[in-house]
């Protein structure tokens, strides 16, 4: 820990207190697409403790569920951590609606998981696709800070969805953008970008791949023939995030490991991705039910609100 003792002593374990405010304040928000948004949360102690590769468990409100979100960035000076959320299910779509600057998150616990073991490779490729773009950033930065040559490979659907390009350029010796439609960078998948990087830099000693399971698996398969060590960051379903429930267990080699305390980073060549994907779909029925229930409640609330508006209208003269 680089901080002086006075700093820690004066920092409450709960975020900066504000009169009447409980929870963890959101101090900035940036929507990078219609489904993906970035939240900056005030939490000085966490900003100080966070390391590349770690995640937090977020509970947006008291009736909410606990969801794992990778720490996409941390700013020790500002005392904030940055989280990226993709609005896909009930909880994340609700967060897309309610998590505005000035509101708070009910619970934020972390930083959880083992920090990424950074290794000693002289040349590292950091691959981020979809939701994995942001969380691969602190890994790229950490590798750069320890003196490695860093090649970033980022995948987006199209040019207008590209974000954090400048941030990546600052910490990458080369940045390869890949888009599905070819509107920016190379026309292709991140695996194409990864192959290109390995051609250009034959001494690549480590690949870090973060994104959807199918993408991480493809990256691991791309590096397997060359025997390049490949680290993937797994994000299975979790409840407590502290090793207590075992819901996040994954098969790595012959062993069952808990992503929350034994990971989330694992050797991509050892991970049983089929098992991971099967476990991720475990709650599909319940997720659909929760979403339908929430959307119904939203519509009811909107209808109620418009009813109120109608009833509040002045009665027309003579009626």
């Amino acid at each position: 820990m680089q901080s002086s003792s006075d700093d820690l002593r004066s920092t409450s374990t709960t975020p900066a207190p504000r009169a009447g405010v409980t929870g963890f304040p959101i101090v900035a928000r940036h929507d990078v697409s219609d489904a993906t948004f970035i939240l900056e949360v005030d939490h000085p102690l966490m900003a100080r403790a966070a390391r590349a590769g770690q995640f937090v468990i977020v509970m947006s409100h008291p009736e909410g569920e606990r969801i794992p979100l990778t720490i996409a960035d941390f700013d020790r000076k500002r005392g904030t951590v940055t989280l990226v959320v993709q609005a896909v299910g009930k909880t994340t779509r609700e967060m897309q609606r309610t998590c505005q600057v000035g509101t708070t998150l009910h619970g934020v616990a972390g930083p959880l998981g083992l920090p990424s073991p950074l290794g000693k490779a002289r040349t590292v490729v950091c691959v981020g696709g979809g939701l994995g773009v942001a969380p691969v950033y602190p890994q790229a930065r950490a590798h750069k800070e320890r003196g490695a040559t860093v090649i970033g490979v980022l995948g987006f659907r199209s040019a207008e969805l590209v974000f954090w390009e400048d941030k990546f350029r600052e910490v990458c010796d080369e940045l390869i953008l890949c888009t599905d439609d070819g509107s920016a960078g190379i026309h292709g998948l991140v695996t194409d970008g990864l192959e290109l990087a390995m051609e250009r830099y034959p001494d690549v000693g480590e690949v870090v791949a973060i994104g959807p399971p199918v993408m991480m698996q493809a990256c691991a398969e791309a590096t397997r023939p060359k025997g390049v060590h490949t680290v993937v960051s797994l994000n299975p379903i979790m409840v407590d995030g502290t090793g207590m429930c075992g819901g996040c267990r994954v098969r790595v080699g012959e062993r069952v490991q808990f992503a929350c305390v034994d990971g989330p980073d694992f050797d991509g060549h050892q991970v049983d991705f089929a098992d991971l994907r099967a476990r991720l779909t475990r709650y599909r029925g319940e997720e659909a039910q929760a979403l339908a229930h929430w959307e119904h409640a939203c519509r009811r609330a909107e209808n109620a609100a418009s009813d109120t508006l109608v009833s509040e209208l002045p009665t027309p003269a003579g009626a």
């Binding site: 820690l8 374990t13 403790a49 619970g107 934020v108 972390g110 959880l112």
Partner: peptide
């Protein structure tokens, strides 16, 4: 103090040596 994972948010050593 809830939402506090000791060891990860701060360590036991820090509690004794830095946090009083």
């Amino acid at each position: 103090e809830c939402n506090t994972v000791v060891g990860r948010l701060f360590t036991i050593e820090q509690m004794i040596e830095e946090m009083g």
